[in-house]
Amino acid sequence: MITYTSDRSVSVTVRNGDTMSGIAKRTGLWPLSAWSAPSGNINLIYPGNIVTYRGTSAAASGSVSTSGRVHVVKRGETLSGIFGADGWQRVAQLNNLASPNLIYPGQRLRY
């Protein structure tokens, strides 16, 4: 069940077999870092949990902030491959990535 609220957040009830990437794909709401789970860790979700997307309207619409540069992730790319061994951690932090090992084609990363 997907619920849209007046504060522009979206709540989804986790179904058996769901993953956060599956929920994001099903709802079209990226990045994963904008999701929260009751456990505090989006990698620990269980059927019946309610997970919440609190992305900004800019992230949901696909537009990006005019401050700074943006890289659109291509298939097969990794953070360290894009930003180097010294830069990937800063980019992960800047984009609030809960798991820097999980980036997706089409995802917009500020740097």
Rank of each mutant, 00 (worst) to 15 (best):
M1H: 13
T3L: 13
T3R: 14
T3Q: 12
T3D: 08
T5P: 05
T5Q: 14
S6I: 11
D7G: 01
R8K: 10
S9C: 14
S11A: 11
S11Q: 15
S11N: 08
V12L: 13
V12K: 00
V12W: 10
V12S: 04
T13E: 15
V14A: 08
R15D: 13
G17R: 05
G17C: 06
D18W: 12
D18K: 10
T19G: 11
M20K: 00
M20H: 00
S21M: 13
G22C: 09
A24C: 07
A24N: 01
K25C: 03
G28F: 14
G28K: 01
G28L: 11
L29R: 01
L29C: 03
W30H: 05
W30F: 15
P31A: 06
L32H: 04
S33Q: 06
W35R: 04
W35V: 01
W35T: 01
A37D: 04
P38F: 06
S39H: 08
G40N: 10
G40L: 12
I42D: 03
N43M: 13
L44Q: 14
L44M: 08
I45K: 02
G48M: 03
N49H: 15
N49F: 13
R54V: 00
G55D: 05
T56K: 10
S57T: 12
S57H: 10
A58K: 15
A59N: 04
G62H: 13
S63V: 13
V64L: 04
S65T: 14
R69V: 04
V70A: 10
V72I: 15
V72A: 11
K74W: 06
R75H: 10
G76N: 05
E77V: 02
T78L: 05
S80E: 10
S80C: 05
S80F: 15
G81H: 11
I82G: 03
F83S: 01
F83C: 02
G84C: 07
A85S: 14
D86Q: 12
G87W: 01
G87R: 00
W88L: 00
W88E: 02
Q89E: 13
Q89L: 13
V91A: 08
A92Y: 02
L94K: 06
L94I: 05
N96K: 09
A98C: 02
A98R: 02
S99G: 02
S99A: 07
N101T: 11
L102W: 14
I103P: 07
I103D: 02
I103C: 04
G106D: 01
G106Q: 03
R108F: 04
R108T: 08
L109A: 08
R110H: 11
